[in-house]
Design a binder for these strands. Structure first.
Length: 451
DNA sequence: TCTGGGGTCCTAGGACCC
DNA sequence: TCTGGGGTCCTAGGACCC
């Protein structure tokens, strides 16, 4: 383990002990669509959420037309399309593939990397000359663009929160926009502060709408204000979480780099339906399908679930409809990662909460109480009385699930599925303008790269 | 007609125990 | 008049992130 933030105390300050960079893809989903369809360059473009509901990524041109983040598409559709705007349904398979490539290119620039989200990665540098970091970041950006096709922004600072702020500046502030890189470490602290003064407190990583409002009322309006206030007082007034943010703004590293993400503590699979669903039959299919997905993710991280929650939702936006948001949690005897066992639990739960006469908009399955699959949680009653049979059954189960996962991974999701998931699947979400799948691992479907 | 999905951490309060 | 006090575990809710 490395000593953390043993900060560079010699006064010359020409070497930085530890620097964080945050790299993120600009309008990531939009940029992904453009990688495979260069004609979209320069056009107002949005990518829609599941079910073609809301705009979750916007090109600069779309932002310029005034398309707000997360706006329901139907509200802007007419005007947007009249202005030449184009909307794509989200195509997560493609985005995930490009994300992996981008992350691996970024990883070439440091041996300490945290993949923070589908489009963001932190890396940590130690012992570099702080001015050289700018050059390094410029190279990184060029390489990501050339090798993956995604334009990216880079922010560099002494802590993760400062790197985040710098990244924001790299996109917003004219001093950095052209280069796409903002290296706060290359600036004297007084100059850094002038930039922090121009960053709204609500734009700081870790400050959401609620806390921004609260801070405003305490006369803390900019990132600099938050940096200069006493962190202990912030803890008193708001929370220990925000105290950490305040410390980070002062350059005191309080949020560590997480190189290997810990296994998830809960797994959720849920979707809105393409159209309202009323019948138990269709709900059963949907819940079965979501359970299958959740179970697949569960096995992918080598965990088992001790319980399962099923929930339903009517349309919250329709004031005339009676609202109903039931959920039920079912304890599984011994924890399990077997799709069939989880499905049985899910369907029995569904029967308990299903009420005829409601128009359901959404259903989902949650797997809480996860544990590592290596920990054998024997069932006292079956395995104690018949250990041999118990073990054989368990081994069989695992082999079957492994085979299922391998086939689906190799031949595509949905190659092998459990009949309860249904054949018709009328409840499937809408994706009216989906770009082709571009199976980027298949030679014959490789995109053409522009020189 | 049409409004995403999937996570984390922290705290407060109740149940339970000694 | 006068009712212990402290620890642990669990859950729900509220905040945050992308």
């Amino acid at each position: 383990m490395k000593p953390r933030s043993e900060s560079d105390s010699n006064a010359s300050g020409c070497r930085s002990q530890s620097a964080f960079a945050l790299i993120d893809g600009n309008s990531f989903y939009v940029s992904c669509e453009r990688v495979f369809n260069p004609k979209l360059e320069g056009k107002p473009l949005v990518v829609l959420s599941n079910n073609d509901g809301a705009c979750i990524a916007r090109s600069e041109e779309a932002k310029a037309l005034g398309v707000p983040m997360a706006v329901p598409y139907f509200q802007i559709r007419k005007a947007f399309e009249r202005a030449g705007g184009i909307a794509y349904s989200s195509n997560y398979g493609v985005y995930a593939e490009l994300s992996q490539r981008m992350m691996s290119v970024i990883g070439q620039f440091s041996d300490r990397q945290e993949v923070y989200s589908i489009d963001e990665s932190f890396i940590q540098w130690t012992g570099f000359h702080r001015f050289d970091l700018t050059t390094l970041a410029v190279d990184l950006r060029k390489r990501v663009k050339r090798w993956v096709g995604i334009p990216a922004g880079v922010g560099i600072g002494a802590t993760k929160t400062l790197a985040k702020s710098a990244n924001r500046l790299s996109k917003k502030h004219p001093d950095f926009k052209a280069q796409g890189v903002c290296n706060l470490l290359a600036l004297p602290e007084a100059v850094q502060d002038t930039y922090l003064a121009r960053l709204e407190v609500g734009d700081v990583w870790g400050v959401g709408a609620r806390w921004a409002q609260k801070l405003q009322s305490l006369r803390i309006r900019s990132a600099l204000d938050l940096k200069q206030v006493d962190p202990g007082w912030i803890r008193q007034q708001v929370s220990v979480v925000l105290e950490r943010t305040a410390l980070e703004l002062r350059g005191i590293a309080s949020i560590e780099l997480e190189e290997a993400p810990p296994p998830k503590q809960q797994i959720i699979s849920s979707r809105s339906f393409g159209q309202p669903v009323t019948s138990l039959d269709e709900l059963s299919q949907a819940v079965s399908a979501y359970t299958a997905r959740a179970a697949e993710n569960l096995r992918a991280q080598a965990s088992r679930a001790g319980a399962l929650t099923v929930f339903l939702q009517t349309n919250p936006f329709d004031p005339k409809e009676p609202q109903y948001y039931p959920s039920i949690t079912i304890r599984l005897g011994p924890s399990s990662a077997d799709t069939r066992i989880l499905m049985r639990a899910a369907l029995s739960g569904l029967k308990h909460i299903y009420k005829p006469g409601c128009r359901y908009r959404k259903a989902g399955v949650m797997l809480p109480d996860l544990s590592a699959a290596t920990v054998e949680q024997g069932d006292l009653f079956s395995e104690l009385f018949d250990p041999a049979a118990g073990i054989i059954q368990q081994a069989d189960r695992e082999r079957l699930m492994t085979t299922l996962d391998q086939l689906n991974q190799k031949l595509g999701r949905g190659t092998l599925w459990i009949v309860a998931e249904g054949f018709q699947q009328n409840w499937r979400m809408r994706r009216e303008n989906l770009s082709p799948a571009y199976y980027t691992s298949h030679w014959d479907q490789l995109p053409v790269v522009r020189a």
